[in-house]
Design a protein around this nucleic acid. Structure first.
Length: 644
RNA sequence: GCUGAUAUGGCUCAGUUGGUAGAGCGAAUCAUUCGUAAUGAUUAGGUCGACAGUUCGAUUCUGUCUAUCAGCUCCA
């Protein structure tokens, strides 16, 4: 029997050889670090035996899939520990995730975070006991019987969702049995380092209509030092949390009298957003976008045409009571219907297409109370919104143009390396959320897929993440907690042109239905600002720094000079502030440094006499003296290059 | 909306097993006029998130609400 190993190495083995034995034949070291096998593309246990010619890869903790299996076993150890301490709790599911694992339990009486330590201690005992994870399979009927015996009602519910003829696998470690696809580590003692990180709530099967369970999160590594390094990294990342330093540095604030999800941008935050907004508006104009400025609210009639009234009403702030025969308005949650109304003003010819509308648009969405988060999730936000109305044969070119613009923007603010793409599709079973027209969705999604593939974009697919009117290409980023959010989106809309009866006259004088792209250049400014604060830990790149230069006087004698220098810098469009406080120069430098101001100009008798300025950079410290013109040239050059 | 936690001067946090509170930073004032990450002194600042209830008395106990945080769900 021939087994094809890594790098196409082929080796002869006797039938019935186990994955572990193959690993051992390669090297003792590999056998020691082996976690599981990948046999003909399927993940398998080390104890799995092979009885025919196969391709086999031995996975270790260095492989992503190896990490998942390792952490999945850690999740089972967690569940065993919890069962030991709380025998009445019921098991649900416990997968490995990005940086660790979790397990959801239904406790008779909810536990508190303090009890995680007790559970950790129990897990250590289980690891020390080094139980083997023994796999066995049962028919569906036998599986039901076993789970009834253990009174695991959630597992029973899972089994009920499986086909009649399913063969269901279980893993047993000590006296703990869990229904699980596997694979797993050979024994519990192979888990070298773990930590339970948090206790939260989570809905059974991810639906808010179901019971809320207790979720315990943890992580595991094959080395204690790597675990500590990871935990430190997480702590470091939290120090960049925009919600903390954005407030400390005076970018934004909130107030309980104003309300949830309604942040106030303070002078620094407002300045950076203004700079981003001007940058986007100017670039869009260069790329043929026409500026619109449309109302922040409209009568319900508009949203009834667009479909928002049927599919997005819960997300809107509505003014007036329909049942009382009043005129009902709603604050706009999106700009589309307004720009479509502009398009429909007058007959459009194919010569008018593509018609690119852009607007710096303030939107209102009535998010549920628990969903707000700093500047990332808010109830009022301002977005570089736009819609491109085009002929079908222009769609691909226009879509490409959107992607090109997005790359341009991401490069400018330095986030290009931090994003991933997600192709967001509809969920045909969710009739309430989506316009119900299977044929149109299929067409929209396949059209979009062709374009994405032509562009050669790498993307993941997500069912049920589309907008109610069409599929989306979402540009995803992660915040300091590792939570993913959409920063930018491009959407193909095959419905609203119909709803608004939008048309153009083609070359043959016939009325045609245009395609529409919904898109944003930089996403909403609040969220983008949040991500920038986290990316740069509050030290904004020079071209969007709210204050670029802090001018520091050494003694009272320089006060007039500082004012004069400020005037000259401001006349060149350089944003600067004075620090003429009666403090030592060291104190004022420290203060500017903590404020993350990119450049400091220090003026004393010496500089006044020699007609130069002393310059300091927040990153490199003192740069010595130079003429004011040289400093201006240096700053202008850096601003021109943006983050490069 | 759901689960859990939190709310004390502008900020970060002590504290009171029920008798209305303190520190550091910051601010103001005064002195100092200083050479690249903290000069010194003085002063002012709090109905302890809001509203009810229990109590002779509530910042402390109970309830409701509001806001904030983590997660779920939802989403730009």
């Amino acid at each position: 029997m021939i087994i094809t190993l890594k790098d196409n190495v082929q080796k002869e083995f006797a039938e019935g050889v186990s994955v572990y034995e193959v690993a051992k034949s390669i090297s003792e070291g590999l056998a020691k670090s082996a976690i599981c096998g990948k046999l003909n593309g399927e993940l398998v246990d080390l104890t799995t035996t092979i009885d025919k010619d196969s391709a086999l890869e031995i996975l270790t903790f260095n492989d992503d899939e190896g990490k998942l299996v390792y952490r999945h076993t850690a999740a089972h150890i967690l569940a065993q520990a919890v069962k030991n301490i709380f025998p009445t709790c019921k098991l649900t599911i416990g997968p490995a995730i990005g940086n660790g694992f979790y397990y959801d339990f239904d406790f008779k009486t909810p536990i508190t975070a303090d009890e995680l330590e007790v559970i950790e201690a129990e897990m250590k005992k289980i690891i020390k006991a080094n139980f083997k994870l023994e796999r066995f399979v049962l028919s569906r009927e036998e599986a039901i019987k076993l789970m009834k015996q253990y009174d695991e009602t959630y597992k029973l519910e899972l089994i009920e969702g499986l086909p009649e003829d399913s063969i269901i696998s279980f893993y047993k470690q000590g006296d703990y049995v869990d229904m699980c696809r596997g694979p797993h580590l050979y024994s519990t003692g192979m888990v070298k380092a773990f930590k339970l990180t948090s206790l939260t709530g989570a809905y059974w099967r991810g639906s808010e209509n179901n019971k809320m369970l207790s979720r315990i999160y943890g992580t595991a590594f094959d080395k204690k030092s790597d675990l500590n390094e990871y935990l430190e990294k997480v702590e470091e990342a939290k120090k960049r949390d925009h919600n903390k330093i954005g407030r400390e540095l005076g970018f934004f604030m909130t107030d309980e009298n104003i309300g949830q999800g309604l942040p106030l941008l303070m002078p620094k935050g407002a300045k950076t957003v203004q700079l981003l907004q001007r940058f986007v508006e100017d670039e869009e104009e260069r790329r043929g976008y026409m500026l619109t400025k449309t109302p922040l609210m409209a009568k319900s009639d508009l949203y009834k045409i667009s479909g928002h009234w049927d599919h997005y009403k819960d997300g809107m702030f509505i003014i007036g009571d329909e049942t009382k025969d009043e005129e009902v308005f709603a604050l706009r949650p999106m700009t589309c219907p307004f720009q479509y109304t502009i398009y429909n003003n007058g007959i459009k010819s194919y010569r008018d297409l593509p018609c690119r509308y852009g607007e710096t648009s303030t939107l209102f969405r009535n998010e549920a109370s628990g969903e707000m988060h700093g500047l990332i999730r808010v109830r009022q936000f301002t977005i570089s919104e736009g819609h491109i109305v085009c002929a079908p044969n222009q769609l691909e070119e226009e879509f490409k143009g959107c992607i090109d613009l997005i790359y341009f923007m991401l490069d400018a603010i330095g986030l290009r390396e931090d994003v991933t793409f997600r192709f967001s599709k509809w969920d045909k079973n969710d009739k309430a959320k989506y316009i119900d027209d299977e044929e149109a969705w299929a067409k929209a999604e396949s059209t979009m897929k062709v374009i994405l593939d032509h562009l050669g974009l790498k993307y993941t697919e997500a069912i049920g993440e589309a907008a109610f009117y069409g599929p989306k290409l979402d540009v995803q980023t992660k915040n300091v907690y590792g939570k993913e959010d959409t920063i930018i989106t491009v959407q193909v809309d095959m419905f609203l042109a119909e709803n608004f009866d939008m048309t153009y006259i083609d070359e043959n004088g016939e009325k045609q239905r245009p395609y529409i792209i919904h898109r944003t250049s930089m996403g909403c400014y609040e969220r983008t600002l949040a991500l920038l604060i986290e990316k740069y830990a509050g030290a904004m790149p020079l071209f969007i720094a709210p204050v670029q230069v802090k001018i520091i006087s050494l003694t009272e004698r320089q006060i007039d000079l500082t004012k004069q220098i400020k005037q000259e810098l401001m006349s060149k469009g350089i944003r600067c502030e004075l620090d003429n406080r009666n403090e030592t120069v060291g104190y004022k430098i420290r203060s500017a440094q903590l404020d993350k101001v990119p450049y400091m100009v220090i003026l004393g008798d010496k500089e006044a006499e020699m007609n130069v300025v002393s310059v300091r950079n927040r990153k490199d410290g003192s740069l010595g003296t130079m003429s004011l013109n040289d400093l201006i040239a240096k700053i202008e050059e850096e601003v021109k290059n943006r983050i490069k």
